[in-house]
Each structure stands twice: as structure tokens, then as C-alpha cells.
Design a protein around this nucleic acid. Sequence first.
DNA 1: TCTATTGGTTGGAGCGCTCCAATGCTGTAG
DNA 2: CTACAGCATTGGAGCGCTCCAACCAATAGA
Lengths: 332, 332
Amino acid sequence: MARPTMEDVARVANVSRALVSLVMRGSPKVSAQRRTAVLEAAEQLGYSPHVMARALASRTSTVLGVMLSDLHNPFFAEVADGLDSAARAEGFELIINSGGRSPARERRALNSLLSFRPAGLALLGPVVPSSAIESAAEESPIVLVSRSSRLSTVDTVNDDGEAGSRMAVDHLVSLGHRRIAHLDGGGGSQSALRRRGFQIAMREHGLEPEVFRSEYTDAAGAKAVKEMLLARETPPTAVVAANDYNAVGAISALEEAGLRVPQDVSVIGYDNTSLASMRHVSLTTIDQPRAEMGRLAAEALLQRVRDGRTDPVRKLLHPKLVTRSTTCPPPA
Amino acid sequence: MARPTMEDVARVANVSRALVSLVMRGSPKVSAQRRTAVLEAAEQLGYSPHVMARALASRTSTVLGVMLSDLHNPFFAEVADGLDSAARAEGFELIINSGGRSPARERRALNSLLSFRPAGLALLGPVVPSSAIESAAEESPIVLVSRSSRLSTVDTVNDDGEAGSRMAVDHLVSLGHRRIAHLDGGGGSQSALRRRGFQIAMREHGLEPEVFRSEYTDAAGAKAVKEMLLARETPPTAVVAANDYNAVGAISALEEAGLRVPQDVSVIGYDNTSLASMRHVSLTTIDQPRAEMGRLAAEALLQRVRDGRTDPVRKLLHPKLVTRSTTCPPPA
DNA sequence: TCTATTGGTTGGAGCGCTCCAATGCTGTAG
DNA sequence: CTACAGCATTGGAGCGCTCCAACCAATAGA
């Protein structure tokens, strides 16, 4: 269980500890001869540097903390993937953590990540109050994904949720729909933007926007549909859901009520997660470039860490429509 | 960005650094008066201990490393949740990492976790060769979830995959099915066990087991069904899929081929992930107690870390059948 | 030949913390 | 009044590493 230290490697290679340190950090000012001696000794002992000791001594961590608002939502998993490969390519490690969509648990997760004194922090779809983010930003560079912020100390990476919702509406209108409802994301991140985009687009088409309160889960989507069907004698012919998860729940409830999707009611999701592309689901949805968002988040952090940038960056990505099997023209 | 240290707190509270350390670790041998003074100073400065420095000095880490074989499979997310709450309750932090179902990436992920010198390591459904696990076990206590092992140095937490498959077969046979196929999990963890359980159960019922090679993804499930339909003029009336993901893909392919589920073909999954319980999917499946498995994994690690246990523990959990809407009696 | 210069190498201090042995202090027994 | 617990408190060493200033050839320039 006791791993070898630099001292051990130095002894075997017959050099000083400082020289081993230089080799480990890939310094050019080491003779080829010594370098190979050190590397051989390290290999032989199975040595690899102690990340924590290194962080302590150098006062510069190579750890990026990532908090997923929800470990179960594939959207975040896919962003994390993008972040991971970008960070790894630059020699950074990721430590992941999850905050169960609850502000209290998120706050704990945030503190836990901060206690590692990470080089930077990426928060994916956080729901903690802005003040918590602000105080965390005093201790570490922060980038927010899928959450906007006015704080001048944090970077953000978002898709244009307003534009995305408009695309959804435009698509449905072009198919001939006039009565279109929106199930919103409640207090979830980005939900206000998506809601507003829906409302604006509807009005531009001369249509009355109708919004039902919901959340970013499939259970909430089903519930909202039930309420919607109860509230209207003739249901809308199309539904713009808060996200893919929500859409799947909505579809279930519609089918349970005897309505066929898409023949009777078209449904459109948001995110284009792996869920939407599953063939059994085959959901028309709005795509966010998830891996790209992760990459940009990593980049933003690295710019602050390495290049010392201090002014905030706001990345806004363009969503796009992905047409699958849950939308078609309304019934005659 | 520079967080306060113990030294700072000590200065403000007008005590020694060592005393602050005692307070932070909740030692009983500190007078109430000093304790409050220290806590107030810490509060005022916004101090929280530096996990890495602590780990270095105490030579005992409070970090548990977790490697998910696949960040996208909700099964692992749910096990991780169970692990998380159990670990947190005992004062341990989790650092998560993912290995994209590829041995090479997993090995990297493993090394990255080890470089933190964690107190223990939980590998969820790993696919790295056993030798890699063995050598990792020399550096840290290890528990394997959803993967069995003969190594005497590692603990394991598994469900009884053989029994689970039998349950699936028994269920289908009791509904009247005779021609039942299995789509297996290829080289994935636990897939050999599930396959064997299927074969044994079929033979016990006097039926011929038929196995099609597949994998733990929805695309593979769809592919296997296509091959199956091509191979047989009269398709089986029921399919036992490798896991839930695989089942969802299989269902899509069946429906695409004009077969209704469950009227023409019954399908049963494995894991009972959140995917299976989604109402639109409503998959009959075999439940594994995922959170419980996470809890047991944490417990196994903690026993090694704190109680110094050295002999391996093998936890075998009992799966159970969850009947939903994808199974029914075969067509007349 | 002597001094700069360069490139490679080294010991030592110190990162923020824990742990231990030693210290000071009170209170009680002798 | 001294002695000795017993307890609270403290300084110092050290965890494994980085970083810096110093050092030591060996070469180049004068």
C-alpha cells in the first residue's frame, strides 16, 4: 500500500530528489543520460507523482472540479465528456460531484469541491442561488454551463435558449400547427429563457402562447400534460416540452389519454440527449452541442488559470432543430 | 483567491496552529472557551481545511475514488448515488471518473484516481483486465461492483445474475412462452453469468436456449434483433435482453419490423434503471438494488480502511422481477 | 591563462496540515 | 508547602513535492 516517493526514485537512479522532480515535470534542462536513468528507476519502482503533494508544493492545482446538477440526466454526462477530454489533453484531472438538483446538496457538493482547492470549477446546470456562486468565485475561477449569470467574475457557456424555443415553434407552425402549448422547466436553469423564446415566437406568428408549469423530469412532464388535458376541452395539437426527459413523460401521458403521437399531438423536446436519439423514443428535439459546450467550458477555465484572463467570457452557442418521429402536421 | 490557512485562524483566535487543528478535527481535549474562539475566527475568515494538505500530513486520505465504466448508463449513476450518501455520512469525499467502456481509457482513469492516493477505490462495472485490477489493489483497497473476481485482495458487490436470468425465463415460461431468445452482453461485466442463467433455466424447462451475441447498448440491441429476425423464419415469441438499454434498442427494431411489443413478442430487460420505469418505455425487467449496492460497496471499503479487514468480502444480492408492460402471453 | 557564460545539478526552505513529545497550569494529596 | 497528577496547550518535525538560489563543471571569449 505504501507507494514509492521521489526520494526512493532518486536513490535508485543515484541522483538528487530535485532532479527527479525536473524529469517528472518534463523539464528540458536535464541531460538525456540522467533522464533515462530516472525514468528507468521510476518504472522499476512503479512510481507516479503524488498529485496532492504536488498541488501543495506548487500552489497550483491540476484539478478541475465539476459539479453536475443531476448525475442521471444524460445531458450533463455528455457535457462532462467534452470537458473531460479537453481537460485531459491539457494535463488536468477532473473530479466530479453531483448535487441532486437540490440547492442544499449542491451547496455541500460545491464546498466539497472547493476543499480540494481546484484550479477551476465548472458548474453544470446549477440551481444554487447566485450568491453562493459569487462567494465560490472568490476562491476559484468558475464557469457556468447551462446557466446564465451577471457576475463579472464568472464565465458562462450556454446555448441560445430563446432561439431554440423559437426554432421549435417555427417548425411546428410550418407544419401547420396553431394551438401549441409549452411545458416549462419551472425553476430549472435556462427555463425562463426557453419560456420567453416560446412566447415571443408565438406572438410573432400571431398565436396565443400557452404555458403550463412543469419541471425537467419525465414525471413532471406527464403531470403537466394531465393538467393541460383537464384544462382544455380541445387539447393543443402540439407541445413544446422543457427538455427531452420532460417530453418523454409528456408522450406517455398523451398516449395514456388515448392521443397518438404525432398523429394527434406533436411533441418536441430540448437538448438532443442520447434519450431522444434512442430509436424507441425517436424524439424531435432541439440540439445543443453538448461536447462542444464542455470543451468551451474547459477552455474558459484554462484561460483564467494559465493566461490570467480576468474579464468574463460569455459563450452563446446556436441550437439547431433535429427532426425525428414525434412531429408531423396536425390532424385535418 | 488565496484562502486563509490554519495559521491565519490561529492568529485571529490568538491560539496556536496546533490548537486550531485539534478544533477542526473535533478533538474533545479543547476547552469550550478556546473552541468557540477558534470557530468564530474560522467563521469570520471563511476558513475551511485544505483537504490535500490534511491528507498529506495525516497519511490517511478521506477520499474515495469511484470509476464508472459508463457515465451515460443510469445504472451506474444510481449505484454512485448510494455510494455517495453512505460515504458522505462517514466523512468521506467522492471523486468520480469515467472510463468510457474502453479498457485503455479505463486504465488511464484508474491511474488518475490512484494518483490522488485515495483511501479506497470503487470500480463500477469495469472492463479492464483482471491484472490491472490486481496491480491497483496493491496500492489501495478496492471494491468491484457488477464484476466478479477471484482476487483475494478485492471485495465484490454483485447481484446474482444467474438467478436474475432464471427469473426472467421463469416469468416468460409461466406466461406460456416456449421459444425464447437471449441477447447477451458480449464481453461486458456480468454478461457471462446472465447468459449461463438463461441457458440453465431454459434447459430446466426442457427448452432450447438460443443466444444472440450483443452488447450493453441500445444500438447493439437493435442490431441483434435484426440478425435474429433474419436467422429465423418464425421469430421467438420472447426476448431476454442483456440490460435495459439493450432492451430498448431491441424493442425499436422489433416494432420497425412490424412486430408489436408485447402482443407479438415479449421483451424483458435487466437492471430496472430509471429508463425502464419511464412510462413511455414501461419495461418489464429484473431489478438490482442499485442504491443498496452502492451502500454495500462503501461499507466494504470503509471496513478495510478503518477496521483493517484484509480478507475479501463477496456480497451477492438477490435480484427481483418487476413486471411492467412489455411482457404478456404469446400470440395464440 | 584567467574570467564569463552556459547548462546541468543540488540542498534547503516551505506549501498547509497532523502528530508527538514537551510544556505550563491548575488542583489535590501528602 | 512541596509533589504529582491530569489536563489544556504548544513548538517542532515531517508528509511528498516544487522552486529557488547556489553550485559545479565544461566551454567560450579575452
